[in-house]
């Protein structure tokens, strides 16, 4: 599934970039421990987290993730969006709880074997 289709389907708010690219999302990963995400998430995946720290953008950039969804209405530090912008990371927010975001992504076929 493509990133812009996911954003449309889940009605995500795009913080960065304004126009969401139509890139293929290879799967998903969920974790609020950034050290864990660094070790487990794979390039091309979409990452669901409640962390809004600027390091989120750094980790996503490091791993070449398709994007990051900050779920549950969690607050996002202004530097996080700046860092995402600077590093070409697609960053989204939603009020949907993380559990529901993951469930909906899976139902859409993201990460299904």
């Amino acid at each position: 599934m493509k990133l812009d289709e996911i954003v449309q389907a889940l009605q995500l708010t795009a913080l960065v970039p304004a126009t969401v690219p139509s890139v293929e999302v290879s799967g998903g990963y969920a974790s609020d421990l950034l050290s864990n995400a660094m070790g487990q998430a794979a390039p091309g995946q979409i990452w669901v987290t409640m962390q809004g720290h600027p390091n989120v953008a750094a980790v996503a950039s490091l791993l070449n993730l398709a994007g990051v969804i900050i779920a549950g209405g969690a607050s996002v530090a202004p530097e996080t969006a700046q860092k995402a912008q600077a590093n070409g990371v697609a960053l989204f927010t939603t009020r949907l709880p993380a559990y529901e975001v993951c469930g909906r992504l899976y139902a859409l076929g993201v990460g299904k074997p």
């Binding site: 609020d32 421990l33 950034l34 050290s35 864990n36 995400a37 660094m38 962390q51 720290h53 600027p54 390091n55 750094a58 980790v59």
Partner: peptide, 9 residues
Amino acid sequence: LLMSLGFLP
């Protein structure tokens, strides 16, 4: 903090 943030800025 290291586990939460992955690295310490």
